[in-house]
Design a protein around this nucleic acid. Structure first.
Lengths: 151, 151
DNA sequence: CGCATTCAAGACAGAATGTCTATGGTCCCG
DNA sequence: CGGGACCATAGACATTCTGTCTTGAATGCG
C-alpha cells in the first residue's frame, strides 16, 4: 500500500511490483494468432472456445485489448471487422522473458543464464553441435547482429 | 495451451493460472538471506527496513513463511530466535525461472532459450570464449553433469 | 428503418501481494 | 512469582491482477 510518512518520507520498502509479463490466457490467444497471419476476434474465439457464445467472444476481445496494450499484437481498424496480428513472435517473446529473468536475478546480464543452460545437461548432443558451430561463427564475425525489438 | 478438446468437456476455457513464481518482496528477503549463512527475522527486517518497527518485522516474518512454503528457505526452530537460511541459491533460482520460461514457451526445451541467448549479441567475447571451452568439454565427456535440485 | 454484428466500457468474483494488527507463547530478571 | 521484552502465528486488510461476463453504444446492410 506504500503508506507515506509525511515527515521522514522513508520509502525503503521492498515494495516493488514489476509490470507483469503476459498472462496465461493472453498467451493462449497470442499462440492462436501465431498460427495465422491475422484474425478477427470472432475467429480467435471460435478457435479457442469451440462452442462458446457471445460472452466468450467478449473475453477474447478483452484479452486482445490487453495484448495490444502490452504491444504484443496490433489491430487493423480499417478492416471490417477489425483484424489483429501478432507483432511479436515466439522467439521475441522468449527474449522478453529472458530479459525479465536476467534483470530480476542477474543485474541484467545474460551470461549467468547461458552458463546455467549449458551446464543443465538438458541440451542434446545435436543441439550442442549446432551451438558450437554458431558460437564459432559469431566469433569470427566479430560484431554480433543488432539487437531485436525490445519494447 | 488448454482449450480445444474434441469431446467437448466443459473445461474449454483458456483458464490456466500457473502456480506462481517467487514474488518481488519475497525475492528481496531471499537476497538478504543470500548475503549471510543464516539470519533471524529481526536481522532481516533491520536490513530491509532500516528504520522499521514491529509491523515491518511481522511483514518479513510473513514473507519468510511464504518463502518456506515455496521451499526457498528453511527454518531452524531449535535456535532461539529461530533462524532462516536459503535452501536455493541464485543459480538454482535462475534455473527454476528458466524452466518456467521453457515450459511456457518452448514445450519444456531449453534449446530455444540457448539459441536466443547466443544470438542476442549480449554475450561478451570473454564469455563466448568460456562458453566455447565449456561446450567443447561437455562434448567429449558424453554424460552431462547431474542435474541440480529441481524440487 | 430494423436488425445483426462489432466494439468499448466497465462490472465482477476470486486469487495474489504487500502490509499490518491482534493475540498468545517464552524467557529472563528482579 | 509477576512484569515486561521478545518472538511467533493467525488472520485482517487494501490493492491489484486475471479471467470472465454484461451492457449499451456504434456500425454496417438489406
Amino acid at each position: 500500500m506504500v503508506p507515506i510518512d509525511i515527515l521522514s518520507f522513508t520509502r525503503t520498502r521492498p515494495v516493488a511490483r514489476t509490470p507483469k509479463e503476459i498472462t496465461d490466457a493472453e498467451l493462449t490467444v497470442l499462440e492462436a494468432l501465431w498460427e495465422r497471419p491475422r484474425a478477427t476476434v470472432r475467429e480467435l474465439a471460435e478457435a479457442l472456445y469451440p462452442d462458446g457464445g457471445a460472452s466468450q467472444t467478449a473475453t477474447v476481445q478483452k484479452l486482445c485489448e490487453r495484448l495490444e496494450a502490452k504491444r504484443c499484437v496490433a489491430r487493423d481498424k480499417r478492416e471490417r471487422p477489425a483484424t489483429y496480428r501478432a507483432t511479436i513472435d515466439r522467439a521475441a517473446l522468449i527474449g522478453r522473458h529472458l530479459r525479465g529473468v536476467a534483470d530480476r536475478l542477474c543485474a541484467g546480464s545474460f551470461t549467468p543464464l547461458l552458463t546455467h543452460l549449458v551446464e543443465s545437461g538438458e541440451i542434446s548432443d545435436a543441439d550442442l553441435q549446432r551451438l558450437r558451430e554458431r558460437v564459432a561463427n559469431l566469433d569470427e564475425g566479430g560484431a554480433p547482429p543488432p539487437r531485436e525489438e525490445r519494447e
